[in-house]
Design a protein around this nucleic acid. Sequence first.
DNA 1: ATCAAATTGTTAAAAAATTCACGATTAACT
DNA 2: AGTTAATCGTGAATTTTTTAACAATTTGAT
Lengths: 211, 211
Amino acid sequence: MKRFPQRTIIRAFIYLRALDALIEDGRVYVSSGELATITSLTDVQIRKDISAFGKVGKPRVGYDTRRLKQLLEEFVVQNVVHVVLFGVGNLGSAILRYPGFQEDKIKIVAAFDSDPEKGDKAINGISIYPLDKAKMIIQKKHVEIGVIAVPKQASQQIADLLVSCGVECVVNFSPTNISVPKGTFVKNIDLAVEFLALFCDMSSKKAAQHA
Amino acid sequence: MKRFPQRTIIRAFIYLRALDALIEDGRVYVSSGELATITSLTDVQIRKDISAFGKVGKPRVGYDTRRLKQLLEEFVVQNVVHVVLFGVGNLGSAILRYPGFQEDKIKIVAAFDSDPEKGDKAINGISIYPLDKAKMIIQKKHVEIGVIAVPKQASQQIADLLVSCGVECVVNFSPTNISVPKGTFVKNIDLAVEFLALFCDMSSKKAAQHA
DNA sequence: ATCAAATTGTTAAAAAATTCACGATTAACT
DNA sequence: AGTTAATCGTGAATTTTTTAACAATTTGAT
């Protein structure tokens, strides 16, 4: 399979989101300039990214929204991704109800919580099981991604569990770093870090403007 | 103020998080190698990053955890950041309760929701106001970041409101792109995008391993 | 006192990503 | 048909980021 620049792939998802909205609005064509406005990126960047996947734009007209969507999906989201969630507190519930997951490409196959109160319930059609059923259920289904949304004291333990079940992709929402063996990929999403980084980024860009 | 590489700044927050855990454990020194294991980065990268801020490591011993923390904070988080939140649904509630915000550098000064039921309540000591009070409250306080956690149909409207209040930094959790004037910075956090991007990233790295 | 091992910090090289400049193409208008 | 304006696609230049290589420093052991 052809390799694409990592950043291009990430932005492809952003383009897909924008295209979905445009298609819903009944738009047939969109230019790189308009996509730039929508996504807060630059038109050149967008054309460069898209050209990595193929030539689909029409000069003077722009890109056919459906065709471009199809092209990006072809290279970037071939399959449905199966996810399990650990921790059905505030954040976990929010994830289970998150609208982006109900459509298309991401399927949460099960959720787990240590609180037996929550067992045997379901949110949004997704069953919630007690922790000790996790190993069995994960190994029966085909799971690519494990999501950790438990209190930080428990996150390493869940990470170990996921690794022992053969899950190689972990998204960690606990504000703590977890250790995993080589070959396992971790994406930490720490809301505090995101906020501070954004603020710093802005400060430095603002300083650059005035310079 | 000195400029640092953008990525270095982002990683500085990751180091800070790791240092906090180490300090809590009573650790006095940590080597770049150990930090690499904790953070899933490389030791070289970490040394490079840290050296941008100053010389604080001791050969053969590593970094003094407290001193390193102090150094990073000096350059990277000088001030408390003030945040307002729009939308107190599942995700909004999770943010208000998020443990990383209760400590130190991030202060959520107010939350807003269109549902009058939620007004006059408070989560975690943070008051929830009706939407129409937003403008007044934001302009009275010093707010750097606005967070959008409302249903996607309403997100553009909230973005416009934030812009009109002079907030120049927006974190958008709606799975939709919002338009803002130049000079305003937006960070989109779309959970679906994060998951898919992680999965693609992993796939491509795995392919690289076998090549 | 000397040597060995571990670790930092730095300079240079390589790789990745972005931006620029501009030719090529198309649609609309006259 | 010819002209103009808008837009794509791309190769080169630039900038940013990462990786590599290695000298310098410190501790601990003998």
